[in-house]
């Protein structure tokens, strides 16, 4: 185990969207754990994952019906924890999404950027 992860970079790739709620919370949770450990974390939403970032979508996703926590809560907590969120520009087209459809705080990046980020990261997690 690495005793000193401070300053390292993790890239989390999220390919699952709002149609599979149980696959939405954990990648954000791991990214928040990383930033708490002073590791730079970026979550890259691509393919179906893009749907999580559409305005009005995340608040409809709730894993525990007895809790008031929704996917929107998780995304807001992640941004507050300085997790970077980025979306695949090409995948946005699949969902007929424009910049105006995206929630605030999300960067739009293209395929070459994600390759660069993958090469720069110390570790990549896929979901």
């Amino acid at each position: 185990m690495n005793d000193d992860p401070e300053g390292k970079k993790i890239l989390v790739i999220q390919t699952h969207g709002i149609e599979t709620p149980r696959r939405t919370y954990s990648p954000l949770f791991y990214a928040m754990a990383a930033t708490a450990m002073e590791i730079d974390a970026l979550v890259w939403f691509t393919m179906d994952g893009t749907s999580q970032l559409k305005k009005g979508a995340a608040e409809q996703v709730q894993l525990d019906p007895t809790s008031d926590v929704t996917l929107k809560t998780m995304i807001e907590q992640a941004l507050e924890a300085e997790v970077e969120l980025a979306v695949c520009q090409q995948s946005m087209a699949l969902f007929d999404m424009t910049t105006d459809d995206l929630i605030d705080g999300v960067k739009i990046l293209g395929a070459t950027s994600i390759i660069d980020l993958s090469l720069q990261a110390d570790h990549v997690m896929y979901f």
């Binding site: 949770f29 928040m32 754990a33 930033t35 708490a36 450990m37 002073e38 926590v69 907590q77 924890a81």
Partner: peptide, 10 residues
Amino acid sequence: TVESSKWVGP
């Protein structure tokens, strides 16, 4: 760092 079932942070 501290974590519960619903939150993790510094």
